[in-house]
Write a protein that binds this DNA or RNA. Structure first.
Lengths: 230, 230
DNA sequence: GCCGTTATTATGTCTGCACATATTGCCCCT
DNA sequence: AGGGGCAATATGTGCAGACATAATAACGGC
């Protein structure tokens, strides 16, 4: 055991003790100082290991109270949100892009609520199709704040709004939602599927601080799956 | 600036510098020692801050090369996977549960591939309906390794397999996938919706080390959304 | 001029110490 | 017995210094 130190080893050992019920769910585990003594390392090293396990949902830590094994551990799955072009390339396909529509319109009510806007606010509305090996991959339907800095003069026929935003307005906060959707005739024609077919869709709303930047719905072609390791 | 230290302040300041293009995408940022000098703190503190930003996808760090602002930052959305009963309770609804079917059957091919099993392996097959305020919420269709320790004698009419596993075989690894699905007549009857309606579904495969534990598909009622902050 | 070896450098991690902070539980006062 | 205040305690974070490691850049031999 000594010699193989590092916080990762300690984290793995703690995981093992939880898995074999040496530290049963709900129980309090020895405090950092005790573990540091047992493993023959500094308390900071134990702290690093346990902090990691708490972030993973395995432990619950409370000041003065101690560290406890989670009763009903909340597992966390982390999905990576890439630029769509990269998402397509990662599947070994050739990405393509076609702008369908660009206009300035008053935002519809659902988007208004999502972004917290006043009724009648004009936003830029964009619809574009992302292609993989020349076949429809996903429809991007976006409402974009016209006050976004740097927006004037951008040609969204050449660069997708998706990619322009990631490059130019990155690091914003927001929410993401996944859901299922039946293809209406228009969607079916665009995504090359049967009307009524079940499609997978993602909606994102993003903000820079309190300022709304964009709301987007990405509707994927039939059979699309989003996966992540647990 | 001095006095307000903590790694969180440094992380926020670094985020700001990236956002205002003081540190443009792709550029190399000053190294930890320089930043520590600038902020008047220890290198370990800067390290903690930058490590956090790298985990968030904002920075890319390479030994000897330095820290760089990500070109196309890969945003990460973290979904919490709760026990279904808690998921229902969190929506302010009364959770219910009904076991529909329990049998020992040879695993079908798709599940076999997912879990890496030999053909003809017998697994325990469970189907159960989770209810919210007595209305169908989600159908659980599960294949469970009969060799799972502690499994014998568990009454899955009283406890959902979902919850039993989280309590008794937690902390396993695996994969999760989200996708859309059209309701077949059987599903439609169970989930109280129209046949052909688009439904949201989740598939998980979980392992303890290399040993397969379970494969499960959760098919949610119409209109279900899964959301996460970014 | 090309290629393999070596030195340099920035990050990754550990140690040992210190103080801050949030609770909890005990004690004391009423 | 009950309630409020205080001290004990475990985590959270900070500092300075050190060595490990990986990847690059510089160098030297052929």
């Amino acid at each position: 055991m000594p010699g193989t130190l590092t916080w990762q080893w300690i984290a793995a050992e703690a995981r093992r003790r939880v898995a074999v019920r040496q530290w049963p769910p709900g129980s309090r585990i020895p405090d950092e100082a005790q573990l540091a003594a047992e493993f023959g390392c500094a308390r900071a090293t134990v702290n690093r290991a346990l902090r990691e396990l708490a972030a993973a949902g395995l432990l619950v830590r409370r000041r003065r109270a101690g560290s406890f094994v989670a009763e009903l551990p909340v597992r966390k799955a982390t999905f990576e949100i890439q630029v769509i072009r990269q998402e397509i390339a990662a599947r070994g396909l050739r990405p393509g892009y076609r702008l369908l529509e660009a206009a300035s319109l008053p935002v519809p009510a659902p988007v208004r609520d999502l972004l917290g806007l006043a009724p009648g606010t004009p936003f830029r509305h964009l619809r574009a199709l992302h292609l993989a090996d020349d076949r429809p991959f996903c429809l991007e339907d976006r409402w974009l704040n016209p006050a976004t800095p740097g927006l004037e003069g951008v040609d969204f026929a050449a660069v997708s709004a998706n990619e322009w935003l990631v490059r130019n307005r990155p690091f914003s906060s927001g929410t993401i939602a996944f859901f299922a959707l039946a293809a209406d005739p228009g969607l079916a024609a665009l995504l090359d599927c049967r009307p009524g077919e079940a499609l997978f869709a993602v909606e994102r709303a993003t903000f820079a601080g309190a300022d709304p930047i964009t709301a987007v719905r990405l509707t994927y072609g039939p059979g699309h799956r989003v996966t992540a390791p647990i």
